[in-house]
Simulated assay, not measured.
Amino acid sequence: MGPVEVDRRRLLASAGLGAALLGGMAATPALAAPAQRFPYRTLPLWPGAAPGAENVTVTQRSVLRSANSAPDDLAWYGITRPTLTLVQPARPNGTALLMIPGGGYERIAASPDGGGIAHHLAGMGFHVGMLLYRLPYDGWAAGPDAPLQDAQRALRILRAETGAGRTGTIGFSAGGHLAGALATRHGDRTYPAIDAIDEGSARPDFAALMFAVVTMTDPHAHGPSRKNLIGAEPSADLIRRHSIEQDLPDDLPPMFLSAAVDDRVVPVENTLILHAALKAKGVNAPCHIFDVGGHGFGSVDDPGGPGHFWPLLLADWLGRQA
Rank of each mutant, 00 (worst) to 15 (best):
P51D: 09
M255R: 01
A20P: 10
V266I: 01
T162M: 06
G307F: 08
G114H: 08
T271Y: 00
V268C: 04
G94E: 02
G165C: 01
R8T: 15
S62W: 02
L158R: 06
G114R: 04
T190H: 05
L22K: 01
S111K: 05
H220W: 14
H295V: 10
L313E: 12
S258H: 02
H222V: 10
A90D: 15
L22N: 09
L43A: 10
P144N: 09
D291T: 15
Q321S: 09
R185I: 03
C287A: 14
G23S: 09
A276P: 00
I117R: 11
F38H: 14
R41T: 13
L274T: 04
T167N: 03
W76L: 09
A109S: 13
P3L: 13
A53N: 13
T57N: 08
T28G: 14
G129Q: 10
L229V: 03
G48S: 07
T80N: 04
Y191N: 08
G296V: 09
R203S: 02
P29K: 03
A53D: 13
A90T: 11
L131Y: 08
Q246Y: 04
P44N: 01
G94A: 01
F211Q: 11
P34K: 04
A193P: 15
L272V: 02
A96N: 07
R153W: 07
P44I: 02
V56P: 14
A50M: 08
L229D: 06
T28N: 14
F206Q: 04
S69Y: 03
S299H: 12
W317F: 10
P92F: 03
R8G: 09
P89S: 05
L252G: 01
T217A: 15
A259V: 03
R153I: 13
T162K: 04
G94F: 01
S173E: 09
P303R: 00
G78Q: 05
T271I: 03
A277K: 05
P39F: 01
A35H: 12
G48R: 10
D7M: 13
T162I: 05
G319H: 11
G180Y: 01
L11W: 01
G200A: 15
W317H: 11
G102I: 05
N93H: 05
A315Y: 00
D302A: 12
A118R: 06
G163F: 08
A207Y: 01
D316A: 14
P303A: 00
A13E: 14
G115I: 03
D316F: 00
L31G: 07
S201F: 00
S299C: 10
H308M: 13
P112V: 01
P192S: 08
P71R: 02
R65L: 14
V292D: 15
D251S: 06
L209I: 08
P44G: 02
R9T: 12
A109R: 11
A232W: 09
G165V: 08
A30N: 10
P303E: 04
G296Q: 08
L252E: 05
A154Y: 07
A196P: 11
A35Y: 00
H295Q: 10
G304D: 15
P192K: 08
P249C: 01
